[in-house]
Amino acid sequence: MIVYAEYVFLENFIMNFIILSLTSKFGKTQTKKVRLLMASSLGALYAFVLFFPSLHFLFSMMMKVTCSMLIIIIAFSPYRFKEFFRLLGIFYLITMVFGGAGFALFYFTSFNGIISNGIFYTTNITLKNLMLSCGLAYILINFCWGYIQKQLSRDKIYMKVKIQMNGENVELKGLVDTGNSLKDPLTSHPVMIVEYNAIINLFPESIQAAFIGSKYPNFNEITMLLTNTPWMTRLRFIPFEALGTENGMLVGFKPDSVLIEKDYEIKNIENIIIAVYSKRLSKSGDYTALLHPDLV
């Protein structure tokens, strides 16, 4: 059976590009198209090892894992190990769904192909059939991901939160946010983001004045107001990045403790930082705090 090199490259390049694009989408990670093109090309070139018997050692399990890791690095350049392995896991999951959809289509149609060292090569693939398998995989991924997201959006990820500071308490509802990876740069304590209006009663009137009527807090003013006061030891500045915001900064405070209740189980957390957010976190008002996943 004849396997055409140009078909091998085209098939793998298209599939890799779609899989990486979906990894970017479901991983909520922005990247440049040129990086996806480069990573897809690397994955497509890897399949060419079939044509070079002296390079068949590259088909080992370790080399396949290494290649997939390199693809993720080229495509997304994750700066943290946690983010890297999260994207790698999503990449593998989507790849498995695509592989299953592809084999199902091959089984029920008249595709011809061979399997060599764990890689499937087809000989009579057409653009129509390739789009069919991609479309089927995309539908499956969206259905499964939508179901998972729907399950995660239920009440089980909403938790009652009580913040204690200087004898004062406030109670609010928090949402466990898997995308919240903020930590205090000084202590590495996890950060919980809370709407200012939900915790206004915890702050002295001098600090309240620095927030009221201002879109963004005045960091210099807050620092001056707290100098030579017990609150100065609680003060933190938390850097963050978000879509449309680079080199952002949040004012944070170390509370006495935070009580988190879920399913009638109460967890007392002392090593935590509260970051104050001036705007609303939820348009519907369902929650007023974003909990770091490490807290639960």
Rank of each mutant, 00 (worst) to 15 (best):
L175T: 04
S110F: 05
L70Y: 12
S77E: 13
T245Y: 09
L202M: 05
Q151M: 13
G252Y: 10
A104Y: 10
F48L: 13
G102V: 04
A242Q: 09
I94R: 00
T245W: 13
L132K: 07
S133L: 11
I73T: 11
L88V: 08
K28A: 09
K183N: 10
D294T: 09
T122W: 03
D256Q: 07
K150N: 11
K254S: 09
K82Y: 11
F13Y: 14
L132T: 11
M192P: 00
S278G: 07
I141C: 04
L225E: 10
L37H: 04
K267H: 04
S214R: 15
P78R: 02
E265S: 02
V8E: 00
P53W: 11
I139N: 03
F85R: 06
L70S: 14
A209V: 07
K160R: 14
L127G: 10
S181I: 14
G43D: 01
I14F: 01
N220D: 10
M159K: 09
G213D: 13
Y216F: 13
K33W: 14
G99N: 02
L58M: 14
V194P: 01
I119A: 12
L140T: 12
E168K: 14
T66A: 15
I199K: 01
C67W: 11
P190F: 06
K283F: 06
N169P: 04
R154Q: 09
I2D: 08
T31A: 10
A75N: 04
I141V: 15
L202F: 03
K162M: 03
T187D: 06
F219G: 02
K156H: 15
C144S: 13
T23N: 04
S60D: 03
S68Q: 05
L225Q: 11
I73N: 11
V49K: 01
T95A: 14
E168A: 14
L20S: 01
G27Q: 08
C144Q: 13
V49Y: 00
M131F: 15
I14T: 08
F108L: 12
F52V: 12
F81D: 01
I148L: 10
I94Q: 05
N218A: 08
A75H: 01
